[in-house]
Design a protein around this nucleic acid. Sequence first.
DNA 1: AACTTACCACTACACCCGAAGTGGTGTCAA
DNA 2: TTGACACCACTTCGGGTGTAGTGGTAAGTT
Lengths: 191, 191
Amino acid sequence: MRQNPERRTALIDAAIEVLADQGARGLTFRAVDGQAAVPVGTASNYFANRDALLTQAGQRVFQRLDPGPAVVGEALALPRTRESVDRLMHEMVERITNFRSGYLAMLELRLEATRRPELREVLTKQIRENVQENIDFHLESGMPGDADTVVMLYLSLNWLILERLTLPDVFGEDRAAALISAAVDQIVPPQ
Amino acid sequence: MRQNPERRTALIDAAIEVLADQGARGLTFRAVDGQAAVPVGTASNYFANRDALLTQAGQRVFQRLDPGPAVVGEALALPRTRESVDRLMHEMVERITNFRSGYLAMLELRLEATRRPELREVLTKQIRENVQENIDFHLESGMPGDADTVVMLYLSLNWLILERLTLPDVFGEDRAAALISAAVDQIVPPQ
DNA sequence: AACTTACCACTACACCCGAAGTGGTGTCAA
DNA sequence: TTGACACCACTTCGGGTGTAGTGGTAAGTT
């Protein structure tokens, strides 16, 4: 088992691209090797089996989706109003949408989790933590709305992103942007 | 090309199961043959190629997800209140959740549509129609709320179903049921 | 300074699996 | 008899795994 951490990370990132491009079944050692532009056999030397690759890809997506401290700081500087929530939601959707391969890979992993209990556990844990972090952050920040408000935004905006990334013409770009604001209007209580 | 329509439908339904079980890449003629308990080569005789199988599976899922006239009639008999909407949403989520393989197959098809323009067109058309039908039905029925209300319910409940079907432990069964009511409470305006 | 050790990139190979597609045969009914 | 269909066999192909082996490099040792 090889240890070089940069190379390992590069392989995992390549695995995310492969997941998005070719689906969970397309995630093979050779495909990862190819995507990472690395000799055949390399990924096989770094990961014991496909499961290891899948779970580590799942963790990596979350790592890369995490907003930096800059975004968090900016959020905390905003006034505690619905308008601020609206702005933050637009930013969040844009940030996630821009990491297209990561989001699609995450969806592939969800479907794969249907068949792999270990992967399901890993993902469940991460999503729960993610939702809880969102709730905690929202409540602590003093923005209007309660835990259910946050969950409802989570649900609706996630599907909106999925819709945009898989069937972009169902809601055009403008309509999708308007729907973000509509979601905030309907879901976040006036302060 | 074989014509027997019952057999053809049975093969498409088998394809839906295969999609849910093994993913889009797992959808091969042989796998469909196996699922349909039919001799090897049969699916190959009924469909020109995998693309035909994929698009027809997509259409079939919608066909099977369509609520019967019984459900529609029942809906129209309800009073025009938020409580009725709440009940209808619970029924809809349950109906869709119960067709697990169909919903998972639909997600696989969405991801596959990322790579196949023809499939993307077919699905886009169907989803647009589906959303529009929901909006029209809601508005014509006189239930409280406007088009955005319906879209917002569509977004949030779809992701809730996805969450339930892929990572059921993120929201437990009870929490998920409560979230349906919470969605209606927050999204549907009081009448 | 020469030597040894350990890690790593890269290559090659042996093996396996499953798929596609086609052509052919048997059967039944119009 | 003819045509449509179910079923079967065979050929061909591609791609994947896992592992063994080779050579290079860097760091530590005597």
